[in-house]
Structure formats: C-alpha cells, structure tokens
Amino acid sequence: MEVKRGRFRLSVLEDSAQDCEVQRRIEREVRIREGACKLLAACSQRDQALEASKTLLTSNSRILALMTQLQRMKEAQAMLRAGRRSSDGGSVDKRLPCTGKVAISDIRIPLMWKDSEYFKNKGELHRCAVFCLLQVGTEIHDTDLVIVDRTLTDICFDEPVIFTDVPPGFDLRVELYSCCVEEEFSMGFSTRRLSRLGSASSKKFMATLETAASCSSHSSGTGSPGGESPVLLPALSVRGPKYHLLAHTSLTLCHVQNSFRTHDLTISDTEGSSFWLPLYGNMCCRLVAQPLCMTQAVMCGKLRIRVCEYNVLL
C-alpha cells in the first residue's frame, strides 16, 4: 500500500511540473500577443502589419490549445485525488505505443483562375496575403507569408514543418488563412518583395517581439505567482489587416506516404469575400512519420536463444 501511495505522490509531483510548464508557455504566448497588438497599432508599413497580424492569430491559436490542455490536466488530477485510478496502475503506460516525429513539406495548393484573368490579364488585380497554420495537439506552427495574385498558378510552402513527440493517433490540421492586401498598402513595394515575405524577415520580426515581451514581463512583473493560470485579457481592438480561414483539411497516420499525395480541402468561404481565392479544392504535400523506436533504444539486455531439434519423418 505504501508503494502505491509513493507512486501516487510521484504522479502528483509530475503533474504539477507539467502544469507549470504549460502555464509558462501560456504566459509567453500572452506576452507575444500583447507585443503584436502594440506593434500592429503603431506600424505603418504593409509587411510589418501583415506579419504582426499573422503573429496575433498564431498566438491566439496556441493560447487556446494550451488552455484546453491545461483544463484536461486539471480534470485528470481531480480524478486522481478522488481515487478513481486505473486498476492496473503503472502498467498501462508500458502497453502504449511509442510516439514519433511527423514532418510535412512541399505544400502545393493549386489555383483555378478564369481564362480572362490569367491568360488575357483582364480585370482588377486581386492580391491576397496567405499562410498556413499547422496544428497537432498543442504544437502549432505557421508558414511564411506568400502574396498571391493572378500571376501564380499554385500557392507553395516549401519549408518542412516537423512535429515532435506525436502519438500514432495524431490529427494534423492544416488551415489556410487569407487576407486581402489593399491597394494603398501595396504602393511602393517592388514585385520581388511582393512575391514572398521571406523567412529571414519573419525570424527578425519574431525575435523583436520576444525581446520586447521579455522586457515587458520583467518590468511589469506579469508572471503568475503561485503557479496560477494567467488571466487572459481580450485582445486590443486595433485596426489593421485581418486574416480569415479560407480552407482546411486534416491528415492522419493513414495519409503518411513517402511521396507526394493529394488531399481534399474544405473551402470555408464563398467567392463574394474580399479574401477569397479561386482554390481548385485540393492540396498536395509530402507527409512522413518516424517512430522513436527507430532511432532510440526501446529495450536492452541479454538475448537467450534456444535451439530446438525436430525429427522429421519422411
């Protein structure tokens, strides 16, 4: 009985450490969100406004996912305190399959422009800034921004995105967000810069936000003492570019393949929206997975081989 109590205390300590880690991640995302709101209200350049708005949307998604995980962890702890533990104790974890890494790369989303727009170059030039948000559980990544107009036939995100510690029953959600780029914002920018907002500028932008968020945290003391959950204030109402969900899809283990594969997209809006793009309705990508047991030792020890001799009757 004492052994079981010891295991229970150890489990409670591990859960408390996990709670603190999740709360620390939430506080970091809250500070990044506050910095993005301030920058969005102050910036006058188009590329900065688009990056700040993208960061704001990504941080909100991460905060929501982390808060959901924190709530589930607290519910599990409450069940443990109530004594409703599994009958076979710690042997359950040994029967669980190992986790692994999942990588998605070379995302291609074809566009279906009208003949008069693409070949004859007629009509108003419709330009949108788009990016993908990729989520597995609480791990959320965003791609670079891409400026799309009728000169492009595909929306391309070449950089690989890697998820770690993924269970075999994962659900990789891919969301495509779009924002209409107003004409006054696009004035004064070269065509090369319009085609793609590179990852270097995005990394510099995120580094600036994190530095400002860290300084703001130390100066104002906004940490959550005593391990309590941070208070999530509503985002500041600022004017600037707004991203809208254009399409989405979900990928699972059955979609893993060592080659390109086409997946159906669910389009979320209609042609009348300003951020709408003529999507073909499909997405091509490469999705691969690697279990940890392929790169790490799962079991070690001496292997005893017993040879049995059989008499064969002819």
Rank of each mutant, 00 (worst) to 15 (best):
M73T: 00
V102E: 09
A36C: 14
C37L: 01
Q48P: 02
E51F: 06
Q77N: 08
R95S: 13
G83V: 07
T151D: 15
G123I: 10
E34F: 06
D149K: 03
S86E: 15
I26A: 07
E75R: 09
L64R: 01
L96M: 12
T99R: 05
T68S: 10
E159H: 05
I63E: 01
L57A: 07
Y118K: 14
I63N: 01
R127N: 08
G83D: 10
V130C: 15
D115C: 08
G137F: 10
S61A: 14
V130M: 13
A42D: 10
K122S: 10
E29T: 01
I109D: 14
L80D: 15
Q135K: 15
M79S: 11
V30Y: 00
C37A: 09
I109F: 06
L56C: 04
L125H: 12
I155C: 07
P110V: 04
S53I: 03
G89N: 09
L66R: 04
I140W: 05
R95V: 13
K101M: 08
L66E: 04
V130E: 11
Q135S: 13
Q135G: 03
W113L: 04
N121C: 13
L64Q: 06
N60F: 00
A82W: 01
D154F: 11
D149R: 03
I162P: 02
E159G: 00
I147R: 04
A78C: 05
V130N: 08
L96Y: 02
D144E: 14
G90S: 09
T68L: 02
Q45I: 10
K74G: 01
H126C: 09
S53M: 03
Q69I: 03
L134E: 13
A78W: 00
S59C: 12
R46E: 15
K122T: 08
R25F: 06
T58C: 07
L57D: 09
M79F: 02
E75I: 09
L134W: 05
V130R: 04
V130L: 13
A65I: 03
V161P: 05
C37V: 04
R25I: 06
C132D: 02
K122C: 11
V92K: 06
A82C: 07
T99V: 05
D154E: 13
G83F: 07
R150K: 13
L96Q: 14
L66S: 06
T99W: 05
P160L: 06
S105Q: 08
L70D: 07
I147C: 14
T99C: 11
D106R: 12
E159I: 08
M73A: 04
E51H: 08
R24D: 12
T151Y: 08
D142P: 00
E159Q: 10
V146I: 10
K94Y: 00
K74S: 05
C98M: 10
E51T: 02
L50G: 07
C128A: 11
L50K: 08
I63Y: 01
K38N: 08
R62Y: 00
P160V: 10
V136N: 07
I107S: 00
R46T: 15
L56Q: 05
L134F: 07
R46M: 15
L133D: 05
G100D: 04
E117T: 13
I26V: 14
E34Q: 12
A52I: 01
R84W: 15
V30K: 00
E34A: 12
S105D: 02
S87F: 13
T138Q: 10
F119T: 03
A36P: 00
A36Q: 02
A76D: 12
Q23C: 07
